[in-house]
Design a protein around this nucleic acid. Structure first.
Lengths: 338, 338
DNA sequence: TTGTAAGCGTTATCAA
DNA sequence: TTGATAACGCTTACAA
């Protein structure tokens, strides 16, 4: 037998579809107890379940929001999702999650599919450096929050949630100067047109400029560990004085550790070592690694919170009264690796 | 202006809705080039996008599958999702992801919502020990794959993808005996009624029974690090001979490491240490930790693969020809911590 | 307290 | 090569 519909229930329970619909939606303001229980019985017996698609045809909203992350295998993304889910779920929204894998094309296709789903809102960690790539979202008038990466030409009207990348890295730079380092070797791995890491490089560069220490930035892109090893080996061989290595993204730290092990370079004796983003585990490597930590879960919550404000404003035709821009602090986790 | 519909396009392009529908679906078998380009132009101009909900009303399938994981902040879950997505996306399916947070109630509600969405299939990492909790899925005739945890009363007709938990742990037990250990202290953290960890305990127990070494199993449940420290401290104080500690889930290893550090117990000198599930990082703790690794991404792929077979079989009214049950190996990553 | 019927955006059947 | 129209399952004015 095909899936039960509201009409099946109505027929079996000897009432009209209207009454069933009212029952389903809890509008039993003036419904006889007899009717109620008769419908309930039928619903249970036929295992009836309202069809969400049909419901949406009559309503303006889907109660579904779309989330597009850059790389779900990165812990950042899963915690971001968790934060979003924690905020959205109690508000009655379900989430369609998509993984762009740092690909512009994938991302474009995914956004299109989400718009086709008529999601009530969108949270994206963008891959494109220019916000014009996302104009379709604006045209569709779908509430949007941009997270983690800030494309150029982002209109003020679009909400965003970022970490305090540049400033924290400026402070890190000063901290390294104070600790007596002469050089800082900055490693990034930027896989898409745009990355939060660029701001981190910028912050470190400013600190270096101000204090006169030497800063070398290396973007490892898709290169493998051997490539990194060669680069690091050369750099370390040619630098005099004390050098600190800064890994600007979590997964990259694995490669850095492998390289340092291969080169037989220890820390903090051989080099200083700092990394972004390594939740919990790195405290057990040697005596712990100095960390700059974001709070992706909180970023997710903030993004979802703003999205809800936008959605509600739109539904009620009232103006949106949110912050529009949230910058979350990056915290320093002290450890003896520098 | 409200979102453009197929009727808007038809009016503007001076054709019928039928023709537009044909165009949208690529059925331009016999459509004049002029008509085609006129429609295309209008579609672009009005930023038209088919409404997925409306489409579903006329079709039997939604091209959406639901995934329910137990804890998205656990790397296991995100890699599982990644594997599922990799297999499903190219086949044209989108994913609604839900996080049950190891809660039975949450899980029940989530499954209900997904069934209301009329998802074409479901992958779940179940929290209930008895499969009867999931009978609604069977009643709804929704294709289903159960992953990671195997509830009681799971009918043969339901597909499942598991890791080879019991057998791998039996082999681990023997390995520990061979390495000269006299006792094995097994730590688990089971948050729901059912857990893959139970099979791991079982495997170790069998190995212990066969070889005559002492095995003590401790389930830490929701207790904190202090509790674990007390328990471990007492156990270690009363055991004679060499003891190996086995952590049966990834995140638990953090706590174990913290406790060992607090107790001033090193490895492999003080105790032997083995853990399940610690992707990449634990090789840098001391000289590396002996690991038993699952492949959650592969589990996801296998689950999605089977789900697709079920969905296609159902759509075409042909019998399902899949394995029904996949058991993936657990690999041993040697390291000097035992 | 309950019912009738229109309409949401699309696809599919039939007809031209 | 294109079009008119019914139908999908539900909600909601309006009626009774």
């Amino acid at each position: 037998m095909a899936k039960a519909t509201i009409a099946d229930i109505a027929r079996e329970a000897q009432v009209s579809v209207t009454t069933v619909s009212r029952f389903i939606n809890g509008n039993y303001g003036k419904m006889s107890a007899a009717t109620k229980s008769r419908i309930q019985e039928t619903v249970d017996r036929l295992d009836y379940r309202p069809n969400a698609s049909a419901r949406r045809m009559r309503q303006q909203n889907t109660h579904v929001v779309g989330v597009v992350v850059a790389d779900i295998s990165n812990v950042f993304s899963s915690l971001l999702f968790k934060g979003i889910d924690e905020e959205l779920r109690p508000a009655g929204y379900d989430v369609m999650l998509m993984n762009s894998d740092n690909s512009l094309e994938e991302e474009r296709a995914e956004i299109n599919r989400l718009l086709s789903q008529r999601v009530d809102g969108l949270v994206i960690q963008p891959n494109a450096s220019d916000f014009n790539a996302y104009s379709s979202i604006i045209t569709a008038r779908t509430p949007l929050v941009v997270v983690d990466r800030e494309p150029e030409n982002l209109p003020d009207s679009v909400s965003r949630v970022m970490s305090d990348n540049e400033d924290s890295c400026m402070r890190l730079g000063k901290r390294l100067v104070d600790a007596g380092y002469d050089n800082v070797l900055v490693l990034s791995r930027m896989k898409s047109e745009i990355s939060a890491q660029a701001h981190r490089v910028e912050g470190l560069r400013k600190a270096a400029d101000e204090s006169g220490i030497l800063m070398i930035a290396i973007d490892v892109k898709d290169n493998d560990v051997d490539w990194i090893e060669r680069k690091l080996s050369i750099a370390l061989g040619h630098l005099s004085g004390r050098t600190a290595i800064v890994s600007l993204m979590g997964p990259l730290l694995f490669d850095v550790l492998a390289v340092l092990r291969a080169l037989g370079v220890g820390f903090p004796d051989g080099v200083g070592l700092v990394s972004f983003d390594d939740w919990r585990w790195s405290q057990y490597v040697h005596d712990g690694i100095y960390l700059l930590e974001q709070d992706p879960r909180e970023m997710g919550r903030a993004a979802a919170h703003d999205l809800l404000l936008q959605i509600r404003a739109k539904e009620n035709g009232i103006p949106y009264e949110g912050d529009g821009s949230v910058v979350l602090p990056v915290s320093f986790v002290e450890a003896p690796s520098i």
